[in-house]
Amino acid sequence: MTYPALLDRPAFSPAASPIRPMRAIMLGCGVVGGGVIERLPDGIELVGILTRTPRPEGVSGFPVFTDPDAVFALKPELVIEALPGGAAAEALVERAVREGCHVVTANKDVAARRPDLVKETQDAGRTFACSSAVGGGAPVLETVARLRDSGVKVGRVRGVLNGTSNFVLDRLASGRGLDASVAEAQDAGFAEADPSADLDGLDAANKLALIAREAWGVDLDPASIPTASIRDLPAHVLDAARLDGRRIRQVGCLSRSVSGVRAEVRLEALPLTDPLSRARAEGNVVVLLPERGAEVIVAGKGAGRLPTAGSLIGDLNRLLKAKR
């Protein structure tokens, strides 16, 4: 005998408890921060934004503060850091860690130089995410982590890691002067007011340190990584590369051997067949060479509002997924 009424009835399940949104504050609301706010994932309740200048009208309906004590008094679980960098930004990231917050940041300088903050966050059962600090729209750290977790051992890394320097090198190769090339990068929103970290290879060195940590659990001091500056690049070298069918690129190199990890940022004249030559304008290209198997190439836009904001949002979505 069958009982249609009972068979058609859905199985009983208790009502799922609604997931409480994660209370968050944002530090900084410039080009990148504004991009994050426009696409803020569901599951995050933005309760305050810290800026340097007052905005009585708020930003997109969110309250704005100029006093760090006031914004941290909101008791956030999550701090989204989108400041230009510098000592003040580092102090605020440190405060977020000390107060037991999850941290999602694009600050590659702090993330690279302060492994203690990353460790302290993780030891407290929190997340310190900085995918946007390397590669912008190119998922470099995410790809390195996936390879590592699947048992693939990366032996070497070569990459065009700084979109601003690549943009400038393309402009120099077309005959523009350095000052004009940098000004164009600034107008496009790729370069900071002070482009030294990009031109001198310091930004790329920070990114190499982050890749080494993700791939091998090794903490490198970015300040100890040898670098070469675009400002020291003679015009005749650019001309010779062009006549020889090559492109000058700022290349970050990492390798691991029994003697340890070596890192360097150098300027190379690459043949057009080299994957790194494909990085044009603000693009990034990174080649991961496993100890066994085929190379893995990761590419994407490395500078600008959308790539960086998109990477921050990716970290936020991964954090939310992990908490469900």
Rank of each mutant, 00 (worst) to 15 (best):
T227K: 01
S224L: 12
A212L: 09
I230L: 14
R249H: 07
G245H: 11
L233C: 08
S259I: 06
L254F: 10
D198C: 15
R242V: 14
G252Y: 00
L233H: 04
P226H: 07
A212V: 10
G217P: 00
P222H: 02
L238D: 14
S224T: 13
P234G: 11
A204F: 03
L220N: 01
A212I: 08
T227F: 02
T227M: 00
V251H: 01
Q250Y: 06
V258D: 10
D221W: 03
A223G: 07
P234L: 13
N206A: 11
V258K: 07
R246W: 06
R231S: 09
W216P: 04
D239C: 11
G245P: 07
L199F: 14
L238P: 09
A223S: 08
C253A: 12
A228N: 01
A212C: 12
A205W: 01
D200K: 09
S257C: 12
I225T: 04
T227L: 00
K207Y: 10
D200Y: 12
L208E: 06
R249G: 01
P234K: 13
L210A: 04
V218N: 06
R246F: 08
P234I: 10
D239K: 09
L238K: 13
A205E: 00
L208H: 06
S259V: 08
A205C: 11
P234A: 14
R231F: 11
A204W: 01
R256G: 06
T227N: 00
A241W: 03
C253P: 04
N206Y: 07
L220E: 01
D244H: 09
C253L: 15
L220P: 00
S255I: 03
R256E: 12
A240I: 11
A205R: 00
D198M: 04
K207S: 11
L220T: 02
A241R: 02
H236S: 15
D221R: 02
G201D: 05
L199H: 06
I230Q: 03
R256Q: 12
S257G: 14
G252R: 01
D232M: 12
A235R: 14
S257R: 11
S259G: 06
I211K: 04
S259E: 09
G245Y: 11
G245K: 08
S257T: 10
G201L: 04
H236A: 15
L254S: 10
P234D: 10
A205Q: 02
N206S: 11
D232S: 14
S224F: 07
H236C: 14
G201R: 00
G201K: 01
P222F: 01
P226A: 12
N206D: 10
S229C: 13
P222V: 03
L210D: 03
D219L: 05
L202N: 00
D239A: 15
E214M: 11
V218D: 08
V218I: 14
A241H: 03
S255V: 02
V218Y: 06
K207Q: 15
I211R: 03
R231H: 10
D200E: 15
V251Q: 00
A228K: 05
A215Y: 01
I211S: 04
